[in-house]
Every structure is written in structure tokens, then in C-alpha cells.
Computed example of a mutant assay.
Amino acid sequence: MQQQYENGVSAACLVGAAWQKSRYSNPSGNCVELARLPGGSIALRNSRDPEGPALVYTPDEIAVFLLGAKDGEFDGMVGER
């Protein structure tokens, strides 16, 4: 049986997760990291708190978020860059 993880699980409990961050990440640690979990779910964590809580999403949830991000739907949240 595959492990099911809930939102808010400690990222330290996600044994074997291979965390990945964007190449746009900066040295001050302002980044979000993602990891694919067994069973296909995807976890997100704050790189400044690697053992803190992780949010867990389905591949479909991540896919629609990425489509929106690519289309610029969330650009107003971070202001001009």
C-alpha cells in the first residue's frame, strides 16, 4: 500500500523525497522546492525551513497551477519584476 500524505506534514517525514528548486532561486533562500512523492503526489516546501510543513498536491492540481502561471494569471501577486 502506498503512503498517503496530508497537507502540513513535516517535510522531514517525506523520506526519499528528491527536492528540486528553480534555477531562478537566489542565494538569500527565497525559493519554493518541489518533490515528486511515491504514488505521484507532489510536495512543496519552503527552502528556508526544510523540515517544516509541506503542502501535498495531486499531479492534476499542479498541472492547472502551472498552466495559470505560464499564462501570467498570478503576475499581479508579485508586482513588477
Rank of each mutant, 00 (worst) to 15 (best):
M1P: 11
Q2L: 07
Q2D: 08
Q3V: 15
Q4S: 06
Q4W: 11
E6S: 15
N7W: 12
N7C: 13
G8I: 03
G8P: 00
G8K: 07
G8H: 07
S10Y: 01
A11E: 05
A11P: 02
A12H: 09
A12E: 02
C13Y: 14
C13F: 08
L14T: 00
V15Y: 11
V15L: 14
V15N: 01
G16D: 04
G16M: 15
G16A: 10
A17Y: 11
A18F: 07
A18L: 14
A18E: 04
W19E: 03
W19Y: 09
Q20W: 00
Q20N: 09
Q20V: 11
S22D: 06
S22M: 02
S22F: 12
R23V: 13
Y24T: 09
S25L: 12
S25K: 00
S25V: 13
N26C: 15
N26A: 11
S28K: 10
S28M: 10
S28P: 03
G29R: 03
G29W: 08
N30H: 09
C31T: 13
C31G: 03
C31E: 01
V32D: 01
E33S: 04
E33Q: 07
A35D: 04
A35P: 11
A35V: 04
R36I: 01
G39P: 00
S41V: 10
I42L: 01
I42G: 08
I42A: 10
I42P: 06
A43W: 14
A43I: 02
L44Q: 09
N46I: 06
S47V: 15
D49Y: 12
P50F: 06
P50G: 05
E51C: 13
G52K: 05
P53A: 15
P53G: 13
P53W: 02
A54F: 07
L55W: 09
L55H: 04
L55A: 08
Y57N: 06
Y57F: 11
Y57M: 12
D60E: 15
D60P: 02
D60M: 09
E61N: 08
I62S: 08
I62P: 09
A63W: 01
A63M: 05
V64E: 14
V64N: 10
F65S: 04
L66T: 05
L67D: 14
G68R: 08
G68A: 13
G68H: 07
A69W: 01
A69P: 09
K70C: 12
K70Y: 03
D71T: 05
D71Q: 13
G72C: 11
E73R: 15
E73V: 12
E73L: 15
E73C: 09
D75A: 14
M77I: 10
M77V: 05
M77H: 12
V78D: 02
V78A: 00
G79L: 09
E80M: 12
R81W: 01
